[in-house]
Design a protein around this nucleic acid. Sequence first.
DNA 1: ATGGTCGACAATCGA
Length: 259
Amino acid sequence: MISIVTWNVNSVRPRLQHLLNFLREQKPDVVLLQETKVENDKFPTMEIEELGYNIALNGQKTYNGVAILSRFVLEDVQNNLPNFADEQARYIEAVVCLKNSALRVASVYVPNGQDLASDKFQYKMEFLDKLRAHANNLLELDEILVLGGDYNVAPEAGDVFDPQGLAGNICFHPREREKLRSILYLGLYDAWRAKHPHQHAYSWWDYRGNSFAQDKGLRIDHLLLSAKALDVMHDCEIIRTERERDTPSDHAPVTVWLE
DNA sequence: ATGGTCGACAATCGA
């Protein structure tokens, strides 16, 4: 059994103790981090390596930044989508070398988009288009593939606390949901939803307005699995307890276990 | 009622 986690940590440095405790307690095999908000030479590499992890980084100052932590050797590390000259560090991909097979993973940080009138929304649409094109190429390899990350899109009504009230809002707008579906229709599967067809649960809660206490959240952090990965999925859970801690990230980790 | 709360960074900006 191997476990793969996606977690938007909202800056790795103030979250380091939470992250190290998570690694010690849960002992995940692979961790896909988003919003590390730090350049590579300032990433807490030593502390994480001491716990037995290999690290691949695509860091950036102040904003964005993604990383892969792995108990197994990482090969073929790819920073940024190969078909998209992006100045923002939002994508890193690698092959995880298992004993008798290989697994390809990516950590994805889809732009937030701000609001529909913003040019940041156009950038979000373009990023999702480029991610779709690259995912289509990856699927041709017919591998065990896990594209984990903060997609900043809640797929369906059951993934938001107020589907009517949020219908036109960023992260739940029909245009974003359509783009996410276009990626899923390539043959990728939302691991958590596959395991919990009828449940309502969230992975992100705004710091503002006491949102977590009222469970006013969105499920925007996803582990998208190729068919071969879904075939061997054992479980998938949102680790809500991480959001309950003092000074948490606004996102909870999501873990998938593969046999 | 464009508020509210974080993080980075040093006055606002992004989320």
